[in-house]
Amino acid sequence: MAFGARVLKTGIAITLALFLAGLLHMTPPVIAAVAAIFAVQPSIYRSWRYMWEQVQTNVLGAVLAMTAGLLFSKDPVAIGLVCVLIIAICLKLKMEETVGLTLVTVVAVMDAAGDWHFALNRFVLIMLGLGSAFLINILFFPPNPRKQFIAQIHSVFAKMSLLLRTVISNEVKEVVFREEKEELERSIQSIADKYRLFEEETKKLKRGKVSHIRQLIVYKQMLLALQKGAAVLDAVQQHYFQAVRSPETDTLYDEHLEKLLKYHEQVLLKFEEKLKPDIRLAPSGGKENDRFIDTMIERYTANPEGKVRLAIVAAAVYDYGYHVGRLDKLVGREMKEEAAGETGEPDGT
């Protein structure tokens, strides 16, 4: 977990849980604090789902623990067996995330050897911590996966752009290139995680509204375009420098990658409506990309010896250009749909 809003919210949730427990004279307040630590989630939907699942498994755990406590008192073996049973039930219900806090409830209740007042006190403390975390997650810096996703897209594109602009010319030191590439891969994985959060929240909380589904398609294509760009780096690293090539070939690849990156950048700016209306986007993802792959095919057909590796790289570059072009079309369609929605007119599609 990186230091950010979620870290701060965890601290505030702990403070609120401890304050409320003290205000209600409930002891020990540390149980409410532990519950609050577990409950701060990266999205509002996950916060609600986590709290609801915790309520279910904690009620079940408290009932089983009370029953076992009445029958077996504080017997360590009985406590261990009940914990195993609770873990099995949570796994069966696909509520793995609730296991830790539910076990806290089970052990605390069984330690009371069937005392109903004690068990109720522990259960209320845990619900107090969960409620505090849920409230803080909604009221303070509420999670905004969409905003975070778009910000990361630009940040990761900048990293990828630097690497793709220098990979053919081989200007960057190998150690630096490797470190930057590993960082890029981690960042793309982080974006993929953010996309899953946004997709989950959109489908569960917004009931699959058509406009939101269209947005999801655009965001998924943004992620895919970055993944295809990173795949070009892999192809170059594994095949390009081991192939027989001429300086002219280096120039051809370098110039086409430069055009694709400019095109990709323009599409992202177009999505955020930052381009002037009269700006024409470079057609690198369409006809220009087709011309590039046609040129490569002609060269490799005329002189195939030692060119298989270059063909692999050319295919990766073409695939990247294709997906940037597809992103351009999806962004254009989304903007058209939004404009039609604002004016109340049909878009003609």
Rank of each mutant, 00 (worst) to 15 (best):
K94C: 07
Q221L: 06
L216M: 10
P145N: 06
S73G: 09
Y322N: 10
Y318V: 04
L269R: 11
L70S: 10
Y263T: 14
M160Q: 15
I31W: 00
A340T: 02
V30D: 04
R291F: 13
S190G: 13
V244W: 10
M110G: 00
Y322C: 09
F118D: 10
A78K: 01
I168L: 05
L91K: 13
N58M: 05
V99C: 04
I14S: 06
P304Y: 12
W48Y: 14
L60W: 02
K147T: 13
G229S: 08
V313P: 01
Y318R: 14
A235W: 01
A119F: 03
I168D: 01
F292E: 01
F149Y: 13
E334D: 14
E305V: 13
G69N: 04
M51L: 15
V313K: 02
T67M: 10
M222N: 01
I213C: 10
V175A: 12
K147H: 12
L184W: 06
M26P: 05
E179K: 13
A65E: 03
H239C: 10
P145I: 07
A5G: 12
A88W: 08
L260P: 00
T27I: 08
L260K: 03
L120V: 13
A302V: 08
L18D: 07
A88H: 10
G114Y: 04
G332Y: 02
C90E: 04
K336Y: 07
D193R: 10
H239T: 03
F241Q: 09
H25K: 13
R122N: 09
G131C: 06
E96H: 14
V324Y: 00
Q266H: 14
F157H: 11
A33C: 05
D234W: 07
Y45H: 09
Y50L: 06
F118K: 10
K307T: 15
I312Q: 08
D319L: 08
L184Q: 02
C83Q: 07
E265A: 12
L233Y: 04
P346E: 14
G348H: 08
H212L: 15
Y263V: 08
A316S: 13
T166C: 01
F141D: 05
R165M: 02
P76K: 05
A78G: 06
I153H: 01
V30K: 06
F157Q: 13
E298R: 15
I191C: 01
A231K: 07
T102Q: 02
L260C: 09
N289M: 09
N137C: 03
L60H: 02
A133D: 03
Q237R: 09
L233F: 00
I136T: 02
L163C: 04
P346M: 12
L252S: 09
Y50T: 11
E171W: 00
K204N: 12
